[in-house]
Amino acid sequence: MNMDSANEQVKIWVKQFSGELYSWAFYKTSDKELSEDMVQDTFVAALKGFKAFKGESEVKTWLYGILKNKIADHYRKQQRRSTVKLDTTSDYFVNGHWKESEAPKEWAVADETHLLDDLKFKSVLDGCINKLPGNWSAIIRLKFIDDKESKIVCQELEITPTNYWQIIHRAKLQLRKCLELNWFAA
């Protein structure tokens, strides 16, 4: 197969797979630019290794394999900063009951439908989502921003459905508290 047809083939794969490869990379790194670069490098590597790919595995599996290596390389080079504090449910509950300081307070919401038109509120909300640990904010983003069905999110992130809503639960506890502190109680 000559170089031109390899080019054409890889371009088709870009259209087909770049979206999900990007979501995967973003889940793993929580870094937009880094994810874009890694997806690009993946396809460049695919073009270079085109002859080696004999169609024995599925294209998608092959591409994921290249990307996974790139992500692993990245983490080997740069030890992941693990300074983000993961809230656990014990930060909120004692023996299953709300801790007194953590129990939800009444929120004074005058106009729910126009909250997001308030740019200050919007930036507080964005800030609170960004403050979530990497995996959680990726899940929140996959769930809402891409409006993915939970089944698909679970597949992409290789987690079980139970795991999924428990992560959502913890993310929501943290998000709720952040909004209360920075907006509704401020």
Binding site: W98, A103, P104, K105, E106, W107, V109, E112, L115, L116, K122, L125, I129, I140, K143, F144, I145, D146, D147, K172, L175, R176, L179, E180
Partner: peptide
């Protein structure tokens, strides 16, 4: 009462996040 508030607030957060998604 605390969980009832949580439930309402959780609902609001869902709504807001979906709306952000729709605008994005």
């Amino acid at each position: 009462g605390a969980c009832t508030k949580y439930s309402r607030q959780s609902e609001l957060i869902e709504k807001l996040a979906k709306e952000i998604a729709a605008r994005q």
